[in-house]
């Protein structure tokens, strides 16, 4: 292992290893966490069973509520090669200039090697990686190179319904008690590979309204995003009603 680092770097690293937070930083952080937590029990769905007009209002409100969601629009593939050979860089550039689906290629040369960065509008990172590696296989043969991929994402605004991409969870609540609905929702969430951390169903005192709150969490594989749509179907006093709302789930990878 190369342990020789310039003094300025050694000194900088030493300073960083000695760095201490200020006296109140921990308390401030915890206070902000507690404050956030106390406001995060989001009302997920408010379902009206009887008045159709009210249901229409709910739909309208859902359509008008702005929602920001993230869309994967491409992939980045980066290859690091321990070679500073300019002719190799040129050869690779020539070999990759017309690759299908690869929109741009940049390279950075340092004394330690060459880093190639390819951008593609293809969202399947693995496919892009293999396309590039197939094209450069003969040039990289015998070299100890690193390949990394990442998704290119953009945030988009729109109405909530525009974010639907799949993952529909349908539950018919006819004749079910609150507890039975809770169990059905929890089971459906588990079926989607997520963990329900809170499912709460409460019928109002006059029996005309049910409030459903759902919180769930789970690990989403790197580069993926998931959208969940909940549909609750049931029959009120002579009026069939259906309300729906979906939430986009974009969680960090772990």
């Amino acid at each position: 292992m190369d342990k020789r680092l310039p003094k300025a770097v050694e000194h900088g690293l030493h300073e960083l290893s000695e760095e201490q937070p200020d006296d109140f930083q921990l308390e401030r952080s915890l206070a902000r966490v507690r404050q956030h937590h106390s406001h995060r029990r989001t009302r997920f769905m408010n379902k009206t069973w009887i008045p159709v007009a009210v249901v229409a209002v709910i739909f309208a409100a859902l359509l008008l509520i702005p929602a920001t969601y993230t869309v994967t629009v491409g992939s980045i593939v980066e290859i690091s090669i321990p070679s500073s050979d300019a002719s190799l860089a040129q050869t690779i550039a020539d070999a990759t200039s017309d690759l299908p689906g690869v929109q741009s290629a940049n390279m950075m040369m340092t004394p330690d090697g060459l880093t190639l960065r390819f951008a593609s509008s293809e969202t399947n990172q693995s496919a892009v990686k293999h396309t590039i590696l197939d094209a450069t296989e003969s040039m990289l043969a015998g070299m100890d190179y690193d390949v990394s991929t990442e998704a290119v994402t953009v945030e988009r605004g729109g109405n909530a319904l525009a974010a639907i991409t799949g993952g529909t969870i349908r539950i018919n609540v006819d004749g079910m008690s609150d507890n039975e609905i809770e169990a059905a929702i929890a089971s459906a969430i588990v079926g989607q590979g997520m963990t329900p951390t809170m499912v709460d169903v409460q019928t109002s005192a006059d029996g005309t309204q049910r409030e459903i709150q759902i919180e769930m969490e789970g690990d989403i594989p790197e580069g993926e995003e998931r959208t969940f749509q909940f549909e609750f179907q049931g029959e009120g006093e002579g009026a069939d009603v259906q309300a729906q709302r979906q939430i986009e789930w974009h969680e960090e990878t772990e």
Binding site: A89, M108, A119, V154
Partner: peptide, 28 residues
């Protein structure tokens, strides 16, 4: 995303930058 990477041919056209000042730890 899409940090500003610079092609090889463009590197020679980078103008001289203003001096920057760093302490060692900030530099690292």
């Amino acid at each position: 995303k899409f940090k500003s990477w610079i092609g090889l041919e463009a590197i020679q056209r980078i103008p001289a930058s203003e001096p920057m000042s760093y302490e060692d730890k900030d530099l690292v």
